[in-house]
C-alpha cells in the first residue's frame, strides 16, 4: 500500500477542499449574521436613537432623527399577511388540483408553468404593478392612489405561490397510496378521501409550505418597493390595505443608497436588515423542523 501513498496525498487535499466548501456554507451564514450585527450595534450607543426605535415615526433625515420601527414592522405585516391570505388557499388548491385532479397532460403542463412563474424577476412584477395594475385598480375601485399595500400583497402572493405549490405538492405525494386506497375502499368519494385522509396526513408539509411562502414574502424587496407607495405611516384597520405603506425591505432598498457610511441612519438600516435576517431564519428553521417531522411520520 505504500506505493499509492503519494496519490493519496493529492486526493486528501482535494477531499479536504471539497469538505471545506461544505463547511463554508455555515461560515457564510455566520458571516452574514456577524456583519449585520457589527453594523447595527453602534445604533445602541446613543440612548436617544435607541429609545426612538420603539416609536411610531420613521424620520431618518429630520432633526432630531427618529427611527421608529413600528410603521415599518406594521407595513411588512400588512403586506405579508395580505399575501398569505391570497397565496395559501390558492397555492394549496393548485397543489391539490395538480396532485389529485389534473389529468397527466395537464399536470405536465402546469408543473413547469408554475416553476416558470417562480422565475419571473421581482422587478417585472413591480413594473406590472406600476405600469398597469396600480393605475387600473385606482381607476376601477376609485382609490386615492395607485400604490397601496394590497397591491403589494397581490403581487407578492403570486411570487409566493410557486413555493407553496411545489412544497404542498411534495407533501401530498408523500401520502402513501395505501391510505387513499383504504379510504376509497370504505366507500369514500375521492373528495372525502382528500379532505379526511390526504390533507390531514400531509398537514405538516402544508404548514411548511405556508411558512416557506411566508419567508419568501417577508423578504421580497423590489416589488414592494415599487408598488406599495413607501409612506412610513401606521396603517389603520382594513383601510390600511388600500393606502400606501412602507415595508422593512423597501426601507433598506430605498434609503441605503443615500446614506452616509457609518451614520446613525446607516446603522439603523443594518438593524432592520438584522431583524429581517432573524425573522426569516426563525421562519425557515421552523419550516425545516416541520418538514423533518413529516419525513419521520411518513415512516
Amino acid at each position: 500500500m505504500r506505493s499509492t501513498k503519494p496519490r493519496r496525498w493529492g486526493e486528501r487535499l482535494i477531499e479536504g477542499a471539497i469538505k471545506s466548501t461544505g463547511i463554508a456554507t455555515i461560515v457564510f451564514v455566520l458571516l452574514i449574521f456577524v456583519f449585520l450585527l457589527k453594523d447595527s450595534l453602534p445604533l445602541f450607543g446613543h440612548a436617544k436613537q435607541t429609545a426612538s426605535l420603539l416609536g411610531t415615526r420613521w424620520l431618518p433625515t429630520s432633526e432630531p432623527e427618529q427611527f421608529g420601527l413600528i410603521p415599518l414592522l406594521l407595513g411588512s405585516l400588512y403586506v405579508t399577511l395580505g399575501a398569505m391570505v391570497i397565496s395559501v388557499p390558492l397555492g394549496v388548491a393548485c397543489a391539490i388540483f395538480i396532485a389529485e385532479l389534473a389529468p397527466q397532460w395537464l399536470r405536465e403542463l402546469l408543473k413547469p408553468l408554475v416553476e416558470l412563474l417562480a422565475a419571473v424577476p421581482s422587478v417585472v412584477f413591480g413594473a406590472l404593478g406600476v405600469l398597469l395594475l396600480g393605475p387600473w385598480f385606482a381607476k376601477t375601485l376609485h382609490l386615492p392612489v395607485g400604490q397601496f399595500a394590497a397591491l403589494g400583497s397581490l403581487l407578492l402572493a403570486f411570487m409566493a405561490i410557486p413555493t407553496i405549490v411545489s412544497v404542498s405538492e411534495d407533501a401530498l405525494h408523500a401520502v402513501p397510496r395505501a391510505l387513499r386506497a383504504g379510504s376509497l375502499a370504505l366507500g369514500a368519494t375521492h373528495w372525502q378521501s382528500i379532505t379526511r385522509v390526504v390533507l390531514p396526513t400531509a398537514r405538516s408539509g402544508l404548514i411548511a409550505a405556508g411558512l416557506l411562502g411566508l419567508g419568501r414574502a417577508i423578504g421580497e424587496t423590489m416589488t414592494v418597493l415599487m408598488v406599495t407607495g413607501n409612506a412610513a405611516v401606521i396603517p389603520q384597520g382594513l383601510k390600511g390595505f388600500i393606502l400606501p405603506v412602507r415595508t422593512m425591505t423597501a426601507t433598506i432598498a430605498a434609503e441605503m443608497g443615500e446614506t452616509a457610511h457609518n451614520s446613525t441612519h446607516y446603522f439603523a438600516l443594518f438593524f432592520i436588515g438584522l431583524l429581517l435576517f432573524l425573522i426569516t431564519l426563525v421562519v425557515n428553521v421552523v419550516a425545516e423542523v416541520v418538514v423533518h417531522r413529516m419525513g419521520r411520520e411518513a415512516k
Binding site: L31, I32, D39, L212, G219, E220, G273, L276, T280
Partner: peptide, 16 residues
Amino acid sequence: AIINLAGVPSVVHGLF
C-alpha cells in the same frame, strides 16, 4: 445553513 442562506432576503444579501 443552506436552507437559511436560501431564505435570507435578497436585500439583506445586499447589505452584507
